[in-house]
Simulated scan of single mutants.
Amino acid sequence: MRPSHLALAVLVAAVWGVNFTVIEIGLAHFPPLLFSALRFLAAALPAVFLVGRPKVAWKWIVAVGLVLGVAKFGLLFVSMDRGMPAGLSSLVLQIQAVFTAVFAFAVLKERPSRLGVAGMAVALAGIGVAAVDEGASGPLGAFALCVLAAACWGASNVLTRKAAPPDPLNFMVWVSTVPVLPLLALSLLTEGPARDLDALAALDWPGAGTILYVAWITTVFGFGAWGWLLRRHPASTVAPFSLLVPFFGMSSAALFLGEPVSGLRWCAAALLIGGVALASFAPRRQPALEPIKVPTSIQES
């Protein structure tokens, strides 16, 4: 990989890691479900008019939009709004790799190797350590919602494998059109019209900036650059850079939000990232499909 391509891969990981700190800042301006809806609205417009027609069936766009956009991001934003720290969120979401492997085994009949199963066990141990750390300092309910968000991310990864989109950026932009109305409806029902209107009436440059970052920088630039790298390098070369996301997530949260990083949290990070690395890159038995070129850990969020 050329130095410029290496720098771009690290930059994307940094963008995705810092995204969790930006979400935390944005939640001070918007209710979580409204914030998530605005994020997808900004990601879809005007990009949907620039990327061309969808290149996969609508059933896959709708399915991924509901599971990834509504369920995964809705749960993540609510989790963080209820007290889940930004840095810890960036770490716990990496358990999506384990959920992806489990769902792929159940749906696609992809059997993980013994090394892959060992990696899942190590990652789960890391989640256990993180839960102990969070239980000592924060709400376990918010932690559980973040784990559920990771499970939804795993399910969306399997749906995306089934869809096999030839253009990841085109796919993500069209997927972003799906969650907007469901998230707005959920926000009106659970957060209330008055709270939503107050947040929109108080919109300022910092609040608008958080929306633009999570929509255009994290989604449009992040996925576009990642897809560009994957078209030029093997997935096995590019994918390991996604393991840098928790490093940037925890570091930016500590730097900009003053979020403490305990010894237990570093231990959890080592176990979870090490386990995810084993589970992600161990050889699989009887692969059902060729791997599609999408990142295994986000954004993105």
Results as ranks from 00 to 15, higher is better:
Ser4Val: 07
Ser4Tyr: 09
Ala9Tyr: 07
Ala14Val: 05
Gly17His: 04
Asn19Leu: 00
Phe20Ile: 03
Phe20Asp: 02
Val22Asp: 06
Gly26Tyr: 09
Ala28Tyr: 11
Arg39Ser: 14
Ala42Tyr: 06
Ala43Lys: 02
Ala43Tyr: 05
Ala44Leu: 03
Ala44Val: 07
Ala47Lys: 02
Gly52Thr: 00
Arg53Ile: 08
Val56Asp: 13
Ala57Asn: 13
Trp60Ile: 06
Trp60Ser: 15
Val64Arg: 05
Gly74His: 10
Leu75Cys: 08
Leu76His: 00
Phe77Ile: 03
Phe77Ser: 14
Val78Trp: 11
Met80His: 00
Met80Pro: 00
Met80Lys: 00
Asp81Ser: 15
Asp81Ile: 00
Arg82Lys: 11
Arg82Ala: 12
Gly87Pro: 01
Leu88Trp: 05
Ser89Met: 04
Leu91Asn: 13
Val92Ala: 13
Ala97Asn: 06
Phe99Asn: 08
Thr100Met: 02
Phe103Gln: 01
Leu108Thr: 10
Val117Trp: 12
Gly119Cys: 07
Leu124Ala: 13
Val129His: 01
Ala130Gln: 08
Ala136Phe: 00
Leu140Met: 12
Cys146Glu: 09
Val147Trp: 02
Leu148Met: 05
Ala155Cys: 03
Val158His: 03
Leu159Gln: 08
Leu159Val: 03
Arg161Asp: 09
Arg161Gly: 07
Ala163Arg: 05
Pro165Ile: 09
Pro168Tyr: 11
Pro168Ile: 11
Asn170Ser: 10
Asn170Leu: 02
Met172Glu: 14
Val173Cys: 14
Ser176Gly: 11
Val178Gly: 14
Leu181Tyr: 14
Ala185Trp: 10
Ala194Leu: 07
Asp196His: 10
Leu197Met: 15
Leu197Gln: 15
Asp198Tyr: 04
Ala202Ile: 02
Pro206Phe: 15
Gly207Tyr: 05
Ala208Ile: 15
Leu212Val: 13
Val214His: 10
Val214Leu: 13
Ala215Gly: 08
Thr219Asp: 03
Trp226Ala: 11
Leu230Gly: 01
Arg231Ala: 15
Arg232Ala: 14
Pro234Trp: 12
Ala235Gln: 09
Ser236His: 08
Val238Ile: 14
Val238Gln: 08
Pro240Arg: 09
Pro240Asn: 11
Leu244Pro: 05
Leu244Phe: 11
Pro246Gly: 07
Phe248Arg: 03
Phe248Val: 04
Met250His: 05
Leu255Trp: 10
Phe256Ser: 06
Val261Ala: 14
Val261Pro: 03
Ser262Pro: 08
Arg265Leu: 13
Gly274Ser: 08
Val276Arg: 01
Leu278Asp: 03
Leu278Cys: 09
Ala279Gln: 09
Ala279Glu: 10
Pro287Ile: 06
Ala288Tyr: 13
Ala288Asn: 12
Pro291Met: 04
